[in-house]
């Protein structure tokens, strides 16, 4: 056991302060310390993306980040993206287009997709497949994930146009 550090991070808009060993992995901080269990652990080696969260505006894999590195950062997880009162269009589209089965990859998948659609608001199928390649799904074969993201993109673009 090593010396604990004082950590401050903002998760889904809420500031959290605690003492932690620097080696604590961000994914465990979220899941075990803060009870934010949406992000999951699938591979431990940054290949599968089940642990994907948004850190300071960028998609990252929280299994390959120490909590110490995230000290001072802003983190968003699936829980911050949308909930029962206001679902994110991606959450709606994944259900509508059967973009999930066991659901284990889904939080990371949707969290990553929110950023993909910021980077490329109307992605082609190829751009979706390339932009989502850091997230592995074992159930769906991706076809309906692609479809879900396309549908959400169309929905979001339409909403944006309507607002303008």
């Amino acid at each position: 056991m090593t010396k604990k550090m004082h950590i401050t991070i903002t998760v889904n808009g809420k500031e959290e302060e605690f003492l932690a060993e620097p080696r604590e992995l961000l994914i465990y901080t979220l899941r075990e310390r803060l009870n934010i269990t949406g992000p999951h652990i699938g591979c431990d080696t940054s290949h599968c993306g089940a642990c994907t969260v948004t850190l300071n505006g960028k998609s990252v894999k929280s299994c390959t980040m120490f909590v110490a590195q995230a000290d001072g950062a802003e983190v968003e997880t699936i829980e911050g993206i949308g909930g029962p009162d206001a679902l994110h269009p991606l959450q709606v589209a994944f259900k509508e287009h059967h973009g999930l089965q066991c659901g284990f990859c889904t939080p990371g998948m949707i969290t990553r997709a929110t950023k993909l659609l910021e980077e490329i608001p109307n992605p082609t199928e190829e751009e979706i497949r390339f932009g989502m390649a850091g997230n592995i799904c074992r159930c769906t074969g991706y076809q309906n994930i692609v479809k879900s993201i396309q549908a959400a993109a169309a929905e979001m673009s339409a909403a944006k146009e309507a607002a303008e």
Binding site: R31, E32, N35, I36, T37, G38, P39, H40, I41, T77, I78, E79, G82, G83, P84, L87, L90, Q91, F94, K95, E96, H98, L100, G103, F104, T106, P107, I110
Partner: peptide, 21 residues
């Protein structure tokens, strides 16, 4: 029929064994 399971999974509210505390 759309899946009834999906509401919890898409909102990060699934309950997998490692979520048990």
């Amino acid at each position: 029929r759309k899946r009834v399971e999906d509401a919890r999974f898409t909102q990060g509210k699934g309950n997998y064994v490692d979520d048990i505390k």
